[in-house]
Each structure stands twice: as C-alpha cells, then as structure tokens.
Amino acid sequence: MNVIFQSTYYTLYQAADQRCFYLDFGQKIVRMSLCQLLSLRHKVMNIDIENHFDSDFNAHGFEVLMLCNKEHLFILNTLEVLDLKKLVSHSFISLGLSAEVPEVTFS
C-alpha cells in the first residue's frame, strides 16, 4: 500500500493490487472504491464550515458524516472537518484528478 496523503488526523492509502483505497480515521480504517472516495469528497466539501462559528446553524460544532452507503458513521468536530477537507483536496491532487492548487487552511 502507498500513502497518497497524510494530514494531521487522517491518512489515505492506495492498495493497487486490490484496486481500492483505505482511509485511516484513527479509530477505524475504511476501505473505499474511487466512487466512494468521490462521494466522501462531495460530502466533505459541501460541509459549510462557517456554520460551525454560528450557533444558530450549528450549536455545538459537530458534523455527522455517513460513508459507504451508511455503513460507517463518524462524528467530527470543527478541527477534524477542516483536516478532512485538507486531506480530500490534497489527495485528489496527488491522485492526478485535480488541477487545483489547494487552499491552505492551517498547517
């Protein structure tokens, strides 16, 4: 397995022999196809982080993330969401599927 990208809390691996990816969430490792990775990207990128700073929208700053057809459920705090956004954007660049220069949110 090769590391595609490692952020503060998460690591994405590619398992070429199995034609899939593994995302290490720390407490759990999730096996994902590229389709599922794209779906994760969609969900993560659509999280409006500004709502985390507005108690009317998101009182406690948590985000519920369901992955792989609701097989996995994660509850993420603001820092974890930001870190996951970073992992996703950098990973797609490493994978050669994104041309964008990623926004650096924090290091």
């Binding site: 090769n2 590619q14 070429a16 034609r19 899939c20 990816f21 590229l34 389709c35 794209l38 990207r41 797609f92 994978l95 050669g96 599927l97 994104s98 041309a99 964008e100």
Partner: peptide
Amino acid sequence: MKDIARQSMSIKVESMD
C-alpha cells in the same frame, strides 16, 4: 505505482463539480 484513480476516472474533479 498503478494509477487506479486515473484508470477509473477520465476527467478532472473541478470539471465534475
């Protein structure tokens, strides 16, 4: 390293969005 991602998808994610 086999490029699974590129083999599975032929456009850029920015275009997809």
